[in-house]
Amino acid sequence: MDGDQHSGGTELGRFLRACRARVTPEQAGLAVGSGHRRTPGLRREELATLAGISIDHYARLERGTETRPSPSVIDALARVLLLEEVEHGHLRSLAALAARTAPEPPAAPSRAVRPGIKLLLESLRPNPAHVVSRTGDLLAYNSGGLRLFAGMDSWPAKQRNIGRYVFLHPAARDLFDDWSNQVRGCVARLRALAGTDPDAPDLAQLVGELLLKSPEFARLWERYDVKGHSHGRKTFHHPDVGHLALGYQSLRLEGTPDHRLVVYYAEPGTPDYDALLLLDLAASESVYPSRIGAPSGDRTEAPK
């Protein structure tokens, strides 16, 4: 029996099961008979054989009773499961986490943003820029860095979170040209964090809220994608300035590795750059406080 209905195990086992279910026999180079397959994706014995390990060894990995897979086994599994570089690295991290004899108590993540970073945010204007926590909380921003997410300023400062916004704010679906891709990216980043720090209170609180309030989040959460993007392009349909096609870059901040600086930009002289100028001007002349990163008037509450 394949044992796919087993519900226990470790994050390593859950990740392996999710990845195995995504790979078809055809993708793995196996001949498929005409009979009905009860198992989505590869069977355990098929994956073990293709990776060159015993079926019993692989079964123990999924069940969580084998916690010290060798690097060569992890690499072989990543090859058969067709994992991309980010997913392969995540698999290695999960294997290292499973091998710990005693869990390390998680340190409370810092929410403090250094004054120098706040000055840097201001110097980046008119490019929208903000600092986010590992779970996507908006910790600091310049004038356009908050206004870019239309309507987020109406939420209390402590509720401003990118994942919460894209799934729960009514303006998000209209703002993002590729909303479905945006939400997949948010879930993937949270899934990656859950694999390496599953007991983190900040993560558990956010994920619990989104699982309860968003069926779309719950569906994507079960897929166990861990792909992330640190740069690229996004297209916005902003209610104040219209169409915006922007490049973006995400950078980890030295000294506070749980924080990321995210900057959006456009080529000077283009309509997109002109729209950024209008966005920055509108934000500067609005009711936002002059102090960077300070909460604006908490006029309405976030979704209950």
Rank of each mutant, 00 (worst) to 15 (best):
I53H: 05
A76W: 12
G64D: 01
R60E: 03
L82W: 03
I74A: 11
A76T: 15
S72K: 12
G52Q: 08
H57A: 14
R79P: 02
S70H: 07
A78V: 03
T67E: 04
I55C: 09
A59T: 13
R79Y: 04
E84P: 11
I55L: 10
S72G: 15
L82H: 11
P71D: 07
R63D: 02
L50I: 01
I53Q: 03
E62Q: 10
G52L: 06
L61F: 07
E66Y: 06
H57C: 14
R60I: 05
V80H: 02
T67D: 03
E62V: 15
R68S: 09
A59D: 11
R79F: 02
E62G: 09
E84S: 11
I55F: 08
S70G: 13
V73L: 03
P71R: 14
L81F: 00
I74C: 08
L77I: 04
V73I: 13
R79T: 09
V73M: 04
T65H: 06
E62K: 15
E84H: 13
Y58H: 08
E66D: 10
L81S: 02
E62R: 09
H57I: 12
I74P: 01
G52E: 07
A76H: 11
Y58R: 08
D75I: 05
P69I: 13
E62N: 11
R63F: 05
A78N: 03
R60D: 02
I74D: 04
E62S: 15
T65K: 09
P69G: 11
T67K: 11
T65I: 06
S72T: 12
A59F: 07
S70M: 09
P71H: 10
T67I: 14
I74M: 09
H57L: 15
A59Q: 14
R68T: 14
I74V: 15
D56Y: 10
I74S: 05
A51K: 02
A76Y: 10
L77Q: 03
L50Y: 00
S54T: 15
D56H: 13
T65R: 09
L82E: 05
E84C: 06
S70C: 10
R60F: 04
L50W: 00
T65N: 04
T65F: 05
G52K: 07
Y58L: 13
R63A: 09
L81T: 01
A59R: 12
H57N: 13
D56E: 14
A76K: 07
S72F: 14
P71S: 11
G52N: 08
S72I: 12
L61S: 05
I74G: 03
I55W: 09
R79I: 06
L50N: 00
R60L: 12
L61E: 01
T65W: 10
S70D: 10
A78H: 01
E66I: 11
P71M: 15
L77W: 03
A78F: 00
L82V: 14
H57E: 14
I74W: 05
E66A: 13
L50P: 01
T67M: 08
G64I: 00
S70P: 10
A59Y: 13
H57Y: 15
D56K: 15
I55P: 06
T67F: 04
L61R: 02
S72W: 11
E84G: 14
P69M: 08
I55A: 13
Y58F: 09
I55N: 12
S54I: 11
